[in-house]
Amino acid sequence: MITRNDVDQAAARIAGLTRQTPILEADSGTYPGPLWFKCEFMQHTGTFKARGALNRILATKERGELKPDVGVVVASGGNAGLANAYAAAQLGVPATVFVPETAPAVKVKKLEATGAMVIQAGVEYAVAYEAAVRHAAETGAVYCHAYDQPEIVAGAGTVGLELLEQLDGVDTVLVAVGGGGLMAGIAAAVEGRARVVAVEPETAPTLHSALAAGAPVDVAVSGIAADSLGARRIGEIAYAVAVRAGVESVLVSDADIVAARSELWGQYRLVVEHGAAAAFAALHSGAYVPGAGERVVVVLCGANTDPATL
């Protein structure tokens, strides 16, 4: 469980190491009330995840857990792997990234370009994850989870602190959910000042299913946003924060996500990945209907996509 205090500490810890990403106001009259886009896709490495990675590594250094010669280890061929490799490079420690043997060569090259040691293990993510955990146990490397560690979640939550500073008033924040780290961090940051609505693909409803079951449960994962919203289970931290903060979950279809992503490009010239477009899809499709005058922020959390697909 994390609170606003944890997010405040994260903000102080990573100050000067991350970008303050801009807020873009949507065209007036499009929705019942004011709408803004929090352009977090402009963060280092193209997603919000650099915030949590930096906070995690710095926090372990403060506690004396980080071995400078061994560094950190992560299992991810996607955004989390890239963010942690970047953060490690910025802080001058080594990073080892375990990826499945099926990871696209372009992603492997991108990871290697940060200076990370990339190790391919197994044909599924689960095998790479187990290999990374063993590596941490054997070497003493700090393990950086993609979304379910307090420092990772608190770092992600600094997005919420920023948007509160950038806007005079916010009623609702729409956030896409996979493992839930970003949602939980923002919910903790804005708790008592704004509410958070989680937006999930119908084909990967981790939080939606957990709220219905009363606890995190495994879900089948597929769909167009599975590369970034493909967690099979909501994080324990995310679930606890969602319940405490009264986070609502709404579902969107693949078609909704595609249409929202196209609208962001066509109307605003914003290039985002499908997972990021999911948050806007809730508004664009009518899955979430704001009240008259409701002040809404849509967090656009990632841009690691192929522009040719727009």
Rank of each mutant, 00 (worst) to 15 (best):
162 E>N: 01
201 P>N: 07
174 L>W: 08
216 P>N: 04
165 E>L: 05
259 A>S: 15
198 A>Y: 13
219 V>E: 03
254 D>R: 02
268 Y>L: 02
151 E>Q: 15
269 R>K: 15
233 R>Y: 07
247 V>I: 01
197 V>C: 15
157 G>K: 09
264 L>W: 14
163 L>D: 03
273 E>W: 10
272 V>R: 01
150 P>I: 00
160 G>I: 01
155 G>T: 00
179 G>H: 11
223 G>P: 08
206 T>P: 13
242 A>V: 08
209 S>G: 05
262 S>M: 11
158 T>G: 13
213 A>D: 08
238 A>Q: 04
204 A>N: 07
241 V>T: 08
270 L>D: 02
205 P>H: 07
265 W>V: 12
220 A>N: 13
255 A>K: 05
216 P>D: 05
170 V>I: 15
198 A>R: 06
214 G>N: 11
250 V>H: 05
264 L>T: 12
243 V>P: 14
209 S>R: 06
267 Q>K: 09
249 S>D: 06
242 A>P: 12
169 G>T: 12
186 I>Y: 13
273 E>M: 07
250 V>R: 09
263 E>F: 14
206 T>I: 01
219 V>I: 01
201 P>C: 10
217 V>I: 04
181 G>L: 03
231 A>W: 05
215 A>I: 00
233 R>D: 08
199 V>Q: 08
253 S>A: 07
262 S>D: 14
238 A>V: 04
215 A>E: 12
260 A>G: 10
233 R>F: 08
222 S>Y: 10
168 D>F: 04
192 G>W: 11
208 H>L: 00
176 A>V: 02
212 A>S: 11
203 T>R: 14
182 L>W: 09
224 I>E: 03
252 V>A: 02
178 G>I: 13
192 G>I: 05
165 E>I: 01
209 S>K: 06
192 G>C: 08
190 V>N: 14
223 G>H: 05
175 V>I: 15
195 R>N: 15
249 S>A: 14
270 L>R: 01
161 L>V: 02
262 S>A: 15
247 V>M: 02
203 T>N: 14
206 T>H: 03
161 L>H: 04
259 A>H: 09
